[in-house]
Design a protein around this nucleic acid. Sequence first.
RNA 1: GGGCCCGUGGCUUAGCAUGGAUAAAGCACUGGCCUUCUAAGCCAGGGAUCGCGGGUUCAAAUCCCGCCGGGUCCGCCA
Length: 555
Amino acid sequence: MFRQFRKDVMETLKNYDVEGTLKESEHADLASTISFKLAKERKRNPVDLAEEIISEIEPSGYIGSIEALNGYINFFADYDFLEDTINVILDTDENYGSLNLDGKILIEHTSANPDGPLHIGHIRNSVIGDTIARIFRKAGVDVTTHFYVNDMGRQVALTVVGMEKFGIDTSKKSDHAVADAYIGINRYMEENEAEKEQIERQVEELMQNYENGDKDTIPLFERAVNYALEGIKETLKQLNISHDLYVRESEFIRNSYVSRILNTLDRKGILRKDGAWFIDLSDYGHEKEVVVRRENGTTLYITRDLAYHLWKNENFERSISILGSDHKLIGKQLSDILDILGLKSPEMVFFEFVSLPEGSMSTRKGKFISADELIERILNESEKILEDRSFSKEEKKEISHAVATGAIRYDFVRIAPEKAMTFDLKSALDFERQTAVYIQYSHTRACSILRKAVDEEFPDLEFNGTTCTHLERKLVMLLSKFSSAVEKVVRELRPHSFADYVMEIAVNFNDFYNQHPVLKAEKEVRMHRLAIVDASRIVLRNGLELLGIRPLEKM
RNA sequence: GGGCCCGUGGCUUAGCAUGGAUAAAGCACUGGCCUUCUAAGCCAGGGAUCGCGGGUUCAAAUCCCGCCGGGUCCGCCA
């Protein structure tokens, strides 16, 4: 709805070059700074210019009034806009906020190495990726999500050795058991210098055999990978995340996409074969050559990744990858090589590292907080709060789970991806903050009022724009911006602004809730406010769903 | 050493793309609010030379240059 209002403003100012001068503001629904820009070239006072401009334009569409103040031109939406906003929300309900984009797009996220459980660094990736995927779907895009499984890496080979040497603890959650083997073999190599070299040889041999499709080796790798993946999937499910497809690196060896890529590179004459195969990317500003085939004939991560992206090019119009910022260099190398081949590169969303107060995490050293542990601890905390409330056991379970996983998702998604974050468990466990709980709570408050309205047999809604208080108007204007918030994420690929938007609605709804009695108001006002409550409920619910957080009706 | 990212009240962050009207929240701190639609809530108060220095501009947290501090990458690892 707000997008329409914006269009109306643009239309009104069509004789001026307002591109980029329109701002949302606390002083107006939309403000233009065009007079400041014009003041310079016309050598005039911006205050006078603003007066002059508004004398030349007429409100149209949803514009109710226009004022010139301090050089700004302020636009205010009219009553029809408020009424249409509420009515559209109530009519379109779960579809409110959708855009009519189309296209087919692939989003790859999480893609953690299958050598252990997801830790809180991976979760940042998953949450950003899943949220972007949800928002793109809301925008009307046909989204497919992939988890790219690095099943051919050294880590997995090492894990295979570890599993053979130490066995696997079947009483544990499978991904954690795999981590034990992986951490165990790393520790063993450190402590037994003499055997290190022999293990390294074994690892290399395993990798070669796996790549060559050796019948005895494949099950070894598959067992380790499947074990890890099984646990990872379980964790992701807890967080309300699932992928449409798990794609393994090795598939691109088996389906010969890797050899296709290598042949194409060779035909282009950009391979320097000197034992290993190298690509010179100095034209793209890279100091070092990129190796795409080892001297022993095996391929590297980037080689298979190139093959994967060839496949992406053949099957999707557009692709987005969520990657830790440690992948920036290899990401650049990947897209430069794809560029040479005339293939489209994925749009990469990089996020900075998550560290612990005591330093950075490492799966290899066993130094990490696993996602499972985090979920477990937050779950305990939310269960504690629910203890003495009158809910059934099932309800308590459901609520605490929704609250716990919501809190985790929100904590990760609210921070701009380019900011490194130090994960503070204590603050994550604190529910007395503006976090997902706050939004969920606002939603339940709305539900609660509506439930009571039905119980007391006056469920009728009738919004009246002209009777809006300042607070009500502010809330409705905010509700009208839902699709703008969706559009912003689609444009910027940074979902933290959306988390902020939903929070702002919750804050304003609570404000409204505290200052405006609904059920006790006389009939007209009551119906008016019930409409606002219901619209807020819808927007909060849709917003929470886009954040992958369960909206609750009671808590 | 070179590349990339970050640096906003005591702490955690938003704002920076497109410069513009008193720099916005939460936590913590101080004081108040449960006979009123769920207090996982609300209200009030104190607290910021927006890392430092320069530049551009009528106007800089926002753009440019330099510096300092932190992170990260620079494997025939992924």
